[in-house]
């Protein structure tokens, strides 16, 4: 008999920032299984980003606990990567040096291996031709690809993404969504994805979590049973539309909770 450990487990998690009376998050109970793509949506101020920071171990829970692959978030950092809303690249480093940053910091690989991993990742995200460029020479979409490549360099099991495509125009965003799914097929990480966009959440996820605000808590958990791989055709399907509408309705309800 094997006991599967959930990839991320929230047990009665609450978060209150010091100096403020109202909690940001309260009583979060969630279990995310290995290989799931989970989106978190909710009105602004419902603590979506805070939730990710807690999983990353960048802030402590006020009460309750989070386990990442059975470990505390601080100890699990090695298998977790974070992608921020801005590309957060180092402007003084070339694209390839930005991608290898995390490997350099962790000193887990000798330099030749680092270069090899970096090269492969740049190929994977289609940026080999700008490896020696500096971030200021890239478009918003390209910068975000570099950011994702950097996150993947350490071979994470779990990817935490905080509105990574919010600053992009809609067409670039749709393309990035498809690319992200393609990458996941090859590497099979678990994803916790925060977004404002219902359509994006439905398109990407196997599960959508709707948060209600003040304090942030789980209002609904919605399974998205559209088959992978998802493509342009998925977006045009009736099932997709229905799911987006249903999720939007739940989101509006959550607002009133």
């Amino acid at each position: 008999m094997t006991v599967t450990v959930p990839e991320v487990l929230f047990r009665a998690v609450s978060k209150r920032f010091t100096g403020s009376s109202a909690p940001v998050l309260e009583g979060i109970d969630l279990s995310i299984e290995r290989g799931e793509f989970v989106s978190i949506i909710g009105p602004s101020g419902c603590g979506k980003s805070t939730l990710l920071k807690l999983v990353a171990g960048l802030a402590p829970c006020t009460s309750g606990e989070i386990a990442v692959n059975g470990m505390t978030p601080e100890n699990a950092r090695e298998v977790v990567s974070f992608v921020f809303q801005d590309a957060t690249l180092l402007p003084w480093r070339t694209v390839e040096k930005n991608v290898s940053l995390a490997l350099e910091l962790e000193r887990s690989q000798p330099p030749p291996e680092r270069r090899q991993i970096t090269q492969k990742l740049l190929e994977l995200v289609g940026l080999s031709h700008v490896a020696k460029h500096y971030p200021r020479q890239l478009s918003g979409g390209m910068k975000m690809r570099v950011s994702i490549a950097r996150a993947l360099a350490t071979r994470p099991r779990l990817l935490l993404m905080d509105e990574p495509f919010a600053a992009l125009d809609e067409m670039t965003r749709d393309r990035m969504n498809e690319e992200l799914l393609r990458l996941r097929e090859e590497q099979n990480w678990t994803v916790l994805f925060v977004t404002h966009s219902v359509a994006e959440a439905v398109f990407l996820s196997s599960k959508v979590i709707v948060l209600a605000p003040h304090p942030g808590r789980v209002a609904h958990v919605l399974d998205v049973d559209l088959p992978y791989p998802r493509t342009e055709a998925t977006r045009e399907s009736q099932e997709f539309d229905d799911l987006v509408n249903r999720t939007s309705r739940l989101l509006r309800e959550a607002h009133r909770l």
Partner: peptide
């Protein structure tokens, strides 16, 4: 320095010396 960058460094278990040498000083 962008707080997100500091957090990125912390996520990858960067030492204080690395945060200084590879982030704060060049910035």
């Amino acid at each position: 320095v962008d707080e997100n960058l500091v957090q990125l460094f912390l996520m990858h278990n960067a030492s204080q010396a690395q945060i200084l040498g590879r982030l704060r000083l060049p910035h």
